[in-house]
Design a protein around this nucleic acid. Structure first.
Length: 445
RNA sequence: GGAGAGAUGGCAGAGUGGUCGAAUGCAUCGGUUUUGAAAACCGACGUAGGGGCAACCUUACCGGGGGUUCGAAUCCCUCUCUCUCCGCCA
């Protein structure tokens, strides 16, 4: 949610900003008008209420005198009658106001964040800006296999059985595959907690509508989420642990000097992938459930862009240690997510696709989520609370990292060399190979 | 799953229909006093919306929502959460 001043004096500025994304002049005009009628209604209703409050006091006094003064009793009765009419008027006015506020809320919650001035203006991913590359695209002397072929060959991923119980877009990791996924999770969490200063969290994986609204997934993107009812209670499966991590501090005032907060969590992530039919239908790239290690920062406003750069570096470090080639993109205005003012994507090299694919997305949301979720801090001990800035980033998407390792570290026999940093999480095993018909083991490559 | 109790300002804790936005204590901040500190004393001390250049005025808020009433922290309905006891359970 944006500062309400945009809907009063900042209408032109707001339109300019939103045009960099996908437009929204009409929406802005509507909101500006609602903002105006809202003010007018408040003014009128408040005047009526002030009058009622004053007269009610008089009635109280008159009633106190009524025993000894019959005239006072009569006067009180008259005033009660008059106020009954005023009460009706107030009720009608409040109802009008309620409708206006409802619409106003509904619309403002659907307005995305404004791009930062450093963000290139563009319509689609074609206009993203490549900031840097690390490593060289892996060159293999043979025709690289896809992770799907490798995974099935090694019997470490089983799409068929996953489909049997859950349908398309689900995966089942087994044996060394499950072990590698777990090793990656642990490696990432260890790195971010011991080297980068993040606090590890295990959050709920289901959250309320309010929490989803706080980080901006709702109300606009409900169709992208899985919703459940537990004991008649509405809950959403998290599409990323950004949601619970950021909402940890909703409706809180963080004491002076406590920021910044760095949080990290591993979680499964659930996405309906509505509208993505036909894209990445095979493999681990696009699933209804995937694993991710998330990074979230809650910081003071003047720090947030600096903190974004650091967060990107924290995510990059994972790829560097895994020796996976990648590039960093600065997303253009049209390709950014709803809540972000600025986003960097990390893309890892995938030999079978001969291209870079997204493996992390790091965004500054400035005070957009903080305003929705009311996350505030005190700049100084006695000072008035201010909205904090929130950032989030993947550190990294675990399934896609798994894919990148299989594809970049394969040999011509379909064996996988395990990056050095993971050895300690895999009992020292340097690689995967297949032995026998139904087995997979950790072994020498 | 069953039975019961509760939710009031940063905290503790009064208040059961009318000058209650809310006593009192603690904490916090300013001041007086003191060589300094403590103590004592005096004063200040919520949030949000609207109006106004401003002083200031006004509205709303006693877990959330709804209702009764001229008037609700107080009465009624409902939801959520917390606690205690019993049962079940990883």
């Amino acid at each position: 949610m944006l500062d309400s001043r945009y809907f009063q004096e900042g209408v032109e500025e707001l339109k300019m900003g939103l045009r960099k994304r996908s437009g929204g002049d009409e929406l802005v005009a509507q909101v500006a008008q609602l903002s105006q009628s809202r003010k007018e209604l408040i003014l009128a209703a408040d005047a009526l209420k002030a009058n009622r409050n004053a007269v009610s006091q008089e009635i109280a006094k008159l009633k106190a005198q009524a025993k000894s003064n019959p005239q006072a009793a009569q006067e009180a009765d008259q005033k009660v009658l008059a106020m009954r009419a005023v009460g009706e008027e107030i009720k009608a006015m409040d109802e009008k106001l309620r409708l206006v506020e409802e619409q106003y809320q509904a619309l403002t919650l659907r307005i995305p964040n404004l791009p930062h001035s450093s963000v290139p203006v563009g319509k689609s991913s074609d206009e993203n800006f490549e900031v840097r590359r690390w490593g060289k695209p892996t060159e293999l002397s043979f025709d690289p296999k896809s992770h799907v072929d490798l995974g099935e060959h090694l019997k470490i991923i089983d799409f068929e059985r996953a489909g049997k119980m859950s349908g398309a877009r689900f995966a089942l990791y087994r044996g060394a595959g499950a072990r590698l996924e777990r090793a990656l999770i642990q490696f990432m969490l260890d790195l971010h907690t011991s080297e980068h200063g993040y606090q590890e969290v295990i959050p709920p994986f289901m959250v309320s509508r309010d929490a989803m609204t706080g980080t901006g997934q709702l109300p606009k993107f409900e169709e992208d989420l899985f919703k459940t009812h537990v004991a008649d209670r509405e809950l959403f499966l998290i599409p990323t642990s950004e949601v619970p991590l950021t909402n940890m501090y909703r409706e809180e005032i963080i004491e002076a000097g406590a920021l910044p907060y760095y949080l990290t969590a591993y979680s499964p992530c659930f996405r309906s992938e509505a509208g993505s039919y036909g894209k990445d239908t095979r493999g681990l790239i696009r699933l209804h459930q995937f694993q991710k290690v998330e990074l979230v920062k809650i910081v003071e406003p003047d720090q947030s862009y600096e903190e974004l750069e650091k967060m990107v570096q924290n995510a990059e470090k994972v790829l560097q240690l895994l020796e996976l080639p990648y590039r960093v993109l600065l997303l253009c205005s049209g390709d950014m997510g709803f809540s972000a003012t600025k986003t960097y994507d990390l893309e890892v090299w995938l030999p079978s696709q001969n291209t870079y694919r997204e493996i992390s997305s790091c965004s500054n949301c400035e005070d957009f989520q903080a305003r929705r979720a009311q996350i505030r801090y005190r700049p100084e001990p006695q000072a008035k609370p201010k909205l904090a800035h929130t950032l989030n980033g993947s550190g990294l998407a675990v399934g896609r990292t798994f894919v990148a390792i299989l594809e970049n570290c394969q040999d011509q026999n379909g064996n996988i060399r395990i990056p050095r940093v993971l050895h300690r999480y895999l009992e020292g095993a340097p690689g995967f190979t297949r032995r026998g018909d139904d087995l997979y083991i950790l072994a020498q490559v």
